[in-house]
Design a protein around this nucleic acid. Structure first.
Lengths: 94, 94
DNA sequence: TTAATTTGGTTTATTTTATAAACTTGTTTA
DNA sequence: TAAACAAGTTTATAAAATAAACCAAATTAA
């Protein structure tokens, strides 16, 4: 039977965020928003979920006087993504 | 920016159904239920959505005295699946 | 200098989905 | 002939995604 798909990753926006974070050291809220085209509200919620799941680390601080939310994928996130991709491949027959 | 993912296909069960139908001439309700492990109710609903979207053809009939729901992917379904897979690849960096 | 706008978000409300539970109709089987 | 089963459908509930409204601080414009 087909492997189940991690519901935390099987979400367009969360998958996009993880997909971006996989390729970079870290990315901030503004960058993720621009790259994904998401609304702030939606992005905020989804970042929170990924953080609570332990898939990303979120560091809130300031750069100069502006707030900055920095996101970084965790090892757990990398593993979950890898497993998700493997499961997905069963569905798209690759 | 990342391509949007067809919401009709970006659903675990509907994707599983299409994935199975891609590989066979046709498949009936019972077979799909067994292969996906879904409940009847869920499967029924999702088959309906795929049908209404024009991604599959559904033929309800009888074999002997037992009802049989036969599903078959349409050309539109094949195309949608192909596009979905292409879009997905952007996310999983392939 | 103070009023409006922008930036970088968060919170709350709404809509949509997925899923499960309950139900139906006809058919075997005991 | 009553109980159980098969093949679904319908309805109710739970969870998700998304948008809209909001907020605080900083910047810009009048």
């Amino acid at each position: 039977m087909l492997s189940p798909l991690d519901p935390l990753l099987h979400s367009e926006l969360r998958l996009a965020v993880i997909s971006i974070l996989i390729g970079v050291e870290s990315a901030d809220f503004v960058y993720l928003k621009e790259r994904t085209g998401a609304t702030s509200g939606n992005l905020s919620v989804q970042i929170d979920k990924l953080c609570k799941a332990g898939y990303i680390d979120v560091e809130k601080g300031f750069v100069g006087r502006k707030p900055r939310t920095l996101c970084k994928i965790t090892e757990q996130g990398r593993i979950a993504f890898k497993l998700y991709v493997e499961a997905l491949k069963e569905y798209i027959n690759m």
